[in-house]
Each structure stands twice: as C-alpha cells, then as structure tokens.
Design a protein around this nucleic acid. Structure first.
Length: 490
RNA sequence: CGGGGCGUAGCGCAGCCCGGUAGCGCAUCUGCUUUGGGAGCAGAGGGUCGCAGGUUCAAAUCCUGUCGCCCCGACCA
C-alpha cells in the first residue's frame, strides 16, 4: 500500500480523504465547507463536462448563462421550492467595505434595498426570464443548459460529495405539453445513465424518488443511484418533471395552436462535481485513485529509465516513435522524462493518481525491443514487444474500461439484497450494508420511521424492478404494490 | 446546534501531563554518488508554536477567553 493512504478496511472515510489529498484532486479552502479543485481534479471534471456537453448537444440542447445573484423575492414565488431551499441560502446584504481598526468592516451605509440570494439552483431566475422568451407554441420547446457554480449553506460537508459551493450543470426546458416534458425528463435521465455507465464505468439504478425525497417544486424526481464500495448509496444525478409549477408561479403562458392560452410544462436536470466523489468510491483502492480510461486526463504514462547520458538518449529515441504513434491515435499520453525523480517514485505516484496504463522503458528494453506494460486496475505487469505496442493500446484501454464497469457491476449485484421482514432488513443493513429491496406501504410516516430507526432511506422506486410484485409492508403489514430500493446513503 | 479531535517550518507530525534558548520525517537548496518499485552521504535555508489576555524570574507547555478547521450525529445534490 502507498504510504500516507489509510486502508479502506481500517477507515473508509479517511481513505477517501487520503485519496483526494495524495492524488492531488482537491484540498480544503480557508472557508469552511468549500474546496479548491486542483489541476488533477479539474482536468477530470473537464473531461466529464466535455462528454456530457456533447451528449446534451446531441439531444438538441444549447448552453446559456444566467446570473449568480437572484432577487430575494423570486425565491418566494413557488411555495414548495422556497420551503426546500430557504434554510440553505447565502444572502447578499451589503455592497461595500470600509477601513477600520480591524482591517475592514462592512459599511453599514451600503445595505442593499433588495437583498440578493446566491443561487442554490436557478429555476426561479430562469423561469422569470422564460416568461419574456415565450409567447406562442412556436417558441417551444426551449432546451437550455447552463454550466455554473451554485451555493448551498450546508451544515456538514465532505470534499466533492457535499460542499457549500459546487460546480454543476443544470438543464432547464420548457414544453407545450405534459407528455413532451415527461419524455424530456426521462430522456435526460437516460443520458445520465449512459454517461455514468459508459464513461464513469459506474453502474446505476434508475428510478423515481418518493415524495419526501423529491426535488422542492417538482411533481416527479427521477434519479440515478449507485452503490459505493463501503455499501452506501450515492445519488449521482437527478432529472425533474416540474409540471406547471414554475410556469404558474412565474406566469409563463403561451398561445397554443388551438388559440388557447396555456401554462408551459417544465423540466430541470443536473449532475455535479459530486460525480467525482462517486468515481473515487467506485473504483479506487488502497494504492490510490483508479480512473476509467475514457475520463482519465492522462491515459498512458511513459516512464523512461536510464543511468547515464548515453542510455538516456538511447531510451528516449527508442520511446519517441511509440509516443508519436500513441498521439497519432488520439491517446492522451504523457512522457515523464524528469531526471530528478527515480523511476520507482514515478511508478508509485502515477498509481496514486490513477493513470490507467504505464509503459516503462529502460536500456534492457531498448536492447531487446521490448517495453514493460503495467495496468493500474489489476496492477499486472508484462513485458511486451515494442513493435505494434502503440496500436494495441486503444483496445487495451477499452478493455480496462469495460473491466472496471464489470467489476463494479458485480460488486453492486452482490451488494443488493432482498429483505422479507423488518428484522431481516435491519440485519442486512447492519451486517452488510448495500441496496436492500423491501416492501413499504408508500406512506411518508412509515418512510420516516424507517429512516429514524435504521438510517436507511428509499433511494428510489426502480423502473426496471426485479421485485415488482405486490406484498405487505415490512413495518406496518399494509398492502405494498411492489418492493422499493432502500439503502443508507451519502 | 450537540459530541469528539486538531491548530507547532511548504506538507505530515512529536514535544505539552512534569514550564528552562523549538524538534523529527518528507519536501526545498548545494555538492558528489545514484536511477528496472517512493535513492545514499555530507552540508544549508526555512517557524511571531492560531489569536488575545493572565500566572511566572521564565510559557509551545499552566489558567481564562476567543477564532478557525476536521471528524461523528440532527438537514441536503
């Protein structure tokens, strides 16, 4: 095990923090609950963002940007929405500082006439704007996404998983009919599922949230849920069918082809830097980060080995065509020819940083026409001929990608249980954790009781439900139309 | 907001109980030797011990206050 990394078995929470620190993904900021995303972490986010952005555009969306500040009055317009976010808003009250004995103080004379809210999400300001954009059914649909930061004043934070400020994308669409909006909600959930599974190699369950877990202001919230290595679930993305709630609150109407004035139907959907936390907890191990090749900022690192200037030039010229062939194939390759660090140090460091493949080349390889190839996921090493090596790399990267997914899928399946009784339910949670299917009577009271007694929540009512048969609630014995998916969650 | 922990060199920490001129590892700089799994030797630089009071001849250490961060719980993506 790499030094400075606590083992998962000893303390999963500490392991997670150690990985982030040692892989240089992020660090705590001077401000409580905020983080500095370091270049390694940001490069990962940029790759995730690039793929998602491409997928959004393929489904007809355009990017726009709405302001960070929202008039306080906007938040009060949709009743459920206010209730959901009121307790975690940063409020701007003043606009100036003045010099004082302590350095600077807020200038009491600069109090704002209307206080501003730092967006916790942008529905309100966007729907206030959409009112101006929409008159006729010919103006619909509006399919807009924005990449932005948002602020939620959280009591307890964890790097990437829950920070006071985080980066995300929020899609906000407007439609003429309920059906079209519902289809959009489901379409974007599928986009998230595809992204999670095909790029992050993170298997997810799709489903609908219960009323108590629903987004504030939504009629329905759909989600992707993933199971982490420690048996806790992570909500990795949400897509909301907002009905006409925001259209009514912000008076957004359109004249339909039948001449009638109607309220617009809405959706919103988002994923955030929280996904990075999910990525870490899906694949990484006690040796460091493990990154899926499709998102890894560096896919292949080449470490040359030499003892003297002659060997250095021999090895580097031996490597040059390999590197060129990789670049020509679009492989993200990095050559680390620094002379102040030993090869062994580099091996360890790139393992900590999660680079999927490493090629090491020394004088012996240059002599024999070989190279040493090492996989991060399995940590297998092999000596391979350098001829044709570069051409095999893209296939190998894809093999690693699918191997990571399959391993995570198997872990998720093995971590998914079925509980017939409440006693069994509690036993599974305490002994194994993981996803637990169980019958529930569908009431918020019972849900709250289960949460209180077991810390587990209904993660979702899965769409593709293997236990879609009626039964009796494990707590109350009342009728239950189907089992739902429970877990303790982040 | 409750419980726990921590603020000492760029990073990670010891020293505090029992007061006496601030230490260790990593990193940095110089030189030589090294380079196939976190190199070795020799030397060097770097700290108002979170902050403010107090006790004392003397405070990183004892007392009081204060600020901040992290972790575990009540809320949430």
């Amino acid at each position: 095990m790499a030094k400075n990394i606590t083992s998962q078995e000893k303390d999963y929470s500490q392991w997670y923090l150690d990985i982030i620190r040692e892989a240089k993904l992020a660090q705590h900021s001077p401000v409580r609950g905020c983080m500095v995303i370091r270049p390694n972490g940001y490069a990962l986010w940029e790759n995730m963002k690039a793929e998602l952005d491409r997928m959004f555009k393929e489904t007809g969306h355009e990017n726009a940007y709405f302001p960070l500040f929202i008039p306080k009055s906007f938040l009060s317009k949709e009743a459920q929405h206010v209730e959901g976010f009121a307790k975690e808003c940063a409020v701007i009250t003043h606009s100036r500082l003045i010099n004082s004995d302590n350095g600077v103080d807020v200038d009491p004379d600069s109090r704002l006439e209307e206080e501003l809210i730092v967006r916790p999400t942008s529905e309100t300001i966007i729907w206030d704007t959409y009112r101006d954009w929409i008159q006729s059914y010919r103006d619909l649909p509006i399919l807009v996404n924005q990449w932005a930061n948002v602020v939620r004043w959280e009591m307890r934070t964890r790097l990437f998983l829950r920070t006071m400020e985080f980066l995300w994308q929020e899609g906000h669409t407007a439609h003429a009919t309920r059906q079209e909006a519902e289809e959009e909600t489901r379409r974007m959930l599928e986009v998230y599922k595809t992204f999670a599974q095909d790029f992050m190699a993170m298997p997810v369950i799709t489903g609908v949230k219960t009323e108590s877990e629903r987004f504030a202001g939504a009629e329905d919230t759909y989600c992707i849920e993933a199971l982490m290595q420690d048996g806790k679930a992570l909500q990795a993305g949400t897509s909301h069918f907002l009905g006409q709630n925001f259209a009514k609150a912000f008076n957004v109407t359109f004249q339909d082809s039948d001449g009638q004035l109607k309220h617009v139907w809405a959706t919103s959907w988002g994923v955030s830097t929280r996904l990075i936390g999910g990525l870490i907890m899906t694949h990484s191990d006690d040796h460091g980060l493990v990154l899926p090749p499709r998102l890894a900022p560096t896919q292949v690192v080449i470490v040359p080995i030499w003892k003297n200037e002659d060997e250095r030039s021999t090895v580097l010229s031996y490597i040059a065509p390999i590197r060129a062939a990789l670049l020509a194939q679009g492989v993200r390759v990095k050559l680390d020819d620094r002379d102040n660090l030993k090869p062994g140090w580099k091996f360890t460091q790139y393992e900590i940083e999660g680079v999927p493949l490493r090629i090491a080349v020394g004088p012996r390889d240059a002599q024999s026409g070989n190279a040493e190839l090492a996989r991060r996921d399995t940590r297998e090493k092999s000596i391979v001929p350098s001829a044709g090596l570069a051409q095999q790399i893209p296939g190998l990267l894809e093999e690693i990608q699918s191997s990571l997914f399959n391993k995570a899928l198997e872990r998720t399946q093995q971590g998914t249980h079925v509980a017939a009784t409440y006693q069994e339910f509690r036993q599974i949670l305490d002994e194994k954790g993981g996803f637990v299917y169980a019958h529930w009577d569908g009431t918020a009271e019972t849900e709250a009781q289960i949460k209180e007694e077991t810390k587990a929540t209904v993660r979702c009512i899965p769409f593709d439900n293997p236990h879609d048969t009626p039964g009796e609630c494990m707590v109350t014995g009342k009728p239950s139309p189907r089992m739902v998916l429970f877990a303790r969650a982040y």
